[in-house]
Design a binder for these strands. Sequence first.
DNA 1: TTTACTGCAAAGGGTTTGCAACATG
DNA 2: CATGTTGCAAACCCTTTGCAGTAAA
Lengths: 157, 157
Amino acid sequence: MLTSPALRSAAMTRSLHDDVAGRLEAAGQRYTSSRRQLVAQLGDLERPHAIAELLELDGSQPQSSLYRNMAVLEEVGVVRRLQGADDVARFELAEDVTGHHHHHLVCTSCGTIDDVEVSPAVEDALHEAVSSARRERGFRTDVHRMELLGTCARCHD
Amino acid sequence: MLTSPALRSAAMTRSLHDDVAGRLEAAGQRYTSSRRQLVAQLGDLERPHAIAELLELDGSQPQSSLYRNMAVLEEVGVVRRLQGADDVARFELAEDVTGHHHHHLVCTSCGTIDDVEVSPAVEDALHEAVSSARRERGFRTDVHRMELLGTCARCHD
DNA sequence: TTTACTGCAAAGGGTTTGCAACATG
DNA sequence: CATGTTGCAAACCCTTTGCAGTAAA
């Protein structure tokens, strides 16, 4: 079993913005229109995107503001930053706010990162590995992530 | 089950260098003393290291040569480049030449990446995910990697 | 009306590259 | 001796930051 993320409904979008607003307020930060717009944009996208890609999709906000807002949103746990195969960071809404646990398919040809869900059996195995790391190495895991590196369908045709 | 990589014996080191020499020759590249020294150094280290760290351990080779040799060795499949939690690349000998399949514990506090082996049950689960990705997404996986992100024992005391 | 945010441009930091000298097969 | 390699320094590119002006609570 392996599915794409579910699309967010209007109601989910509303609660998403409420959640984000609350997190920002708790940190003494403001939920400005540019940040709201950025969160909405990330919510519409079905996979992590780089700053340059976001700029291309919507150039209403300069690069530096995009970086700064992304840093703030990451700080309060709304956004997650990914380092893929290349050296550009890609961003997605954090699982804490989407409630959508997933992993990634990383294309080493074009750099694209796609979301992917895996079966409960695989998740169980990952949790076992997390427990072992803590027991045997004293390593405290925040998140586990599984990444499959290879070439996406778009690249190998 | 979860163990550290086995140390390489003198015999393994010999065959390692033969392997590397062959791969470089096949690519029309030379196995110079600086490259040999670099491979030996990576073979002695028990976890991936950044260029800056390698320079500190052995400054006999300038940064640019280190980067260039690392790129060549990566090209012929001797070295694997990892992008960890921070934005510095770390390098290790590729599994093809060590025969040592493993995953990584990534410390989000100090950036250190440690090798870790997981149980056959976990490996089986990972293979299942690889198969699903190919079947359902047309994603051709070169390598699967599992990374646990958190804080290492050194950092949380 | 205080504090955070924006936008521009400049600086940072890891990585790559041009070029002339060198070394290896 | 032809071709790959080295070393220095400059260039590159993604990302961050200083600062003056602006907007939000």
